[in-house]
């Protein structure tokens, strides 16, 4: 069971920064969805935009880290 559990965790968490970013984004989206109908109407697109920012941010950080290592 421990091996299965480690596998499942490994499947979703490879880069902890990205995983934390996604979880925080989901939390923010969930929080905003409780505020009312106006926010509720755009919550899908808002989540999409936030996730793209998180992904691109993570990629830039990773690339810079790689660039520093090469320098």
């Amino acid at each position: 069971m421990r091996f299965v559990w480690e596998n499942v965790v490994g499947l979703v968490i490879e880069d902890s920064q990205l995983a934390i970013g996604i979880v925080v984004t989901l939390g923010i989206t969930w929080g905003l969805s409780t505020l009312g109908d106006k926010v509720q109407d755009v919550i899908g697109w808002l989540l999409l935009a936030l996730l793209i920012i998180v992904l691109l941010g993570n990629l830039v950080v990773t690339a810079r880290r790689a660039k520093r290592r090469l320098a």
Binding site: L11, V12, I13, E14, D15, L18, A19, I22, V23, L26, L51, V54, L55, N58, L59, T62
Partner: peptide, 11 residues
């Protein structure tokens, strides 16, 4: 779970 899994693949 899909987002954690899918974005990891995409990254």
């Amino acid at each position: 779970l899909l987002l954690l899994f899918g974005l990891r693949w995409l990254r």
